[in-house]
Design a protein around this nucleic acid. Structure first.
Lengths: 271, 271
DNA sequence: CGACTATTTGATAGGACTCAACCTCCGTGG
DNA sequence: CCACGGAGGTTGAGTCCTATCAAATAGTCG
């Protein structure tokens, strides 16, 4: 990874916030007691290096893994080797809140860069959900968010052309990363190869390459060395039929806000 | 709808069970108090006729809608009219457990046949989740199940050919309907037109038609007049790279069970 | 029996895939 | 300091899967 870039290391908007608390605060205000519980339960972190599986299919989930820093993906592999990526995880996202039901993981999660992960024990989660209804609902909310994103991926794969799909994906990542302060000047780190992009969008590597050239030719983006730069977000949104509402970024805003939510203006792309 | 068929009307395995309770019992045992609360909260039902929207995109969700009987689908429409179906709802499924977060629905739900829906008020849901942690986790579990299915749809659309996709979908519906006793002699009601199937699988109507013919030519299924008959489930599963594990039908079974779960043997296809 | 809607069929076009090279960038090691 | 090797990116050519267009054939319902 080029060390000249340090987007990811930039100071967070709130230096003290735990990624999970920051995320859940999009839904509700956690009590001091709840915050403290989170800090206590999710203090010890494990590092995974790029390529490692954080959770593997078939694992008996024994606790909740929480991404503190880095970039990971959910994926599934068919018997004949085809791979489909199911979603990307960024700081604040939980890997397997499936603890309760999914005794076994039905898919895997891999780190795409060095990724820091905290593990909250099953006992702690059960205790939380017994004790803090508000916190429980907040966790639940976060799984609903994941589902909303997954649903949009279904639309993406089912209805959109390669060009639209790719534009849509880049918009989604833009908004999600902007919401956690990881977009600077219209750029964000995207540690994916074209092959990985293909497994994400259901396209061959060759076609990913050509579609990417298309997007560049239209001056919408640049993508090189793991750095994604969006030159014209509005145009990219149009190209991808993107509407940020499914990300529910502003659900907690005061009523009266319009349906389309936008990240902080300072994170918006200029010119 | 042909009245000569009455699969759906056949007596349930437990005449007294509320569809929701039956479903949640796959995860946990609800206390008598919890059961009673469900019955009280979800007694009044509304009927929707085929084609009606049960919930529309943009709706402020005011309570949880629960399918008691019938067949419905989630869907999303792009600005240019393309439609993608995101999943099917059968008795016991909840439409919008998004109440908490998704102040607004980001997609719609339509009835595909006459569908009976119960509405649990938001107040009741909040009260439940405050009072019954076990019940709350069970509801949460059901949303995780939905998500697992949606993830598999991503794989389906991203990686599988038209033929495989269709085989996979028919397997999924077979298992899900078998689990609630709505498969008889390898047949189940599937009130979809070929156009709808196309919107589900990301295929044109014409290609759906031809793929269907393929499946028939291979003696895997028949599909006519809204009745789906699976002639050779194992072969259909192989054709669709289907593995039922993602449906988590047997997660509550005693340990030692193999990873692949099967519906009641009496519901299995013969010959 | 019309008026629809749904299913089929035929013919053609095009988006995306496959195969096969070739190029580029980097890290390693002699 | 340059050769080598490998991973990732780019190109070209040919093919196939699936879409589109168009029209004919069922099936349904008042």
């Amino acid at each position: 990874m080029p060390s000249t870039w340090a987007i990811r290391r930039a100071e967070p908007s709130n230096g003290l916030a735990h990624p999970l608390i920051r995320k859940l605060s999009n839904y509700t205000t956690l009590s001091d007691e709840e915050r403290k519980a989170v800090f206590q339960a999710a203090d010890k972190a494990t590092d995974f290096k790029a390529g490692d599986d954080i959770v593997a299919r078939g694992d008996l989930t024994g606790g909740v893994r929480l991404v503190l820093d880095g970039f990971a993906c959910r994926y599934k592999i068919l018997e004949d080797g085809r791979r489909q990526i199911l979603g990307y995880l960024i700081p604040g996202d939980m890997c397997d809140l499936h603890v309760f039901l999914l005794k076994r993981m039905d898919h895997s999660i891999a780190a795409m860069t060095r990724t820091k992960v905290a593990i909250i024990s099953q006992a702690n989660i059960l205790a939380f959900t017994d004790r803090y209804p508000n916190f429980t609902r907040a966790l639940w909310w976060s799984t609903l968010l994941d589902e909303a994103v997954t649903r949009e991926w279904v639309v993406n794969l089912g209805q959109r052309t390669a060009y639209e799909r790719m534009a849509h994906l880049f918009c989604e990542l833009y908004y999600r990363l902007a919401a956690i302060g990881e977009v600077r000047d219209g750029s964000y780190l995207l540690p994916l190869t074209q092959t990985t992009l293909g497994d994400t969008l259901g396209l061959s590597t060759v076609h990913v390459n050509r579609t990417l050239q298309d997007l560049r030719a239209h001056s919408l983006i640049s993508f090189k060395g793991g750095i994604m730069t969006v030159h014209d977000l509005p145009a990219l949104e149009i190209a991808g039929f993107f509407s940020a509402d499914y990300l529910h970024l502003g659900d907690r805003l005061a009523p009266g806000t319009t349906g389309t939510h936008r990240p902080n203006s300072e994170l918006q792309v200029k010119r």
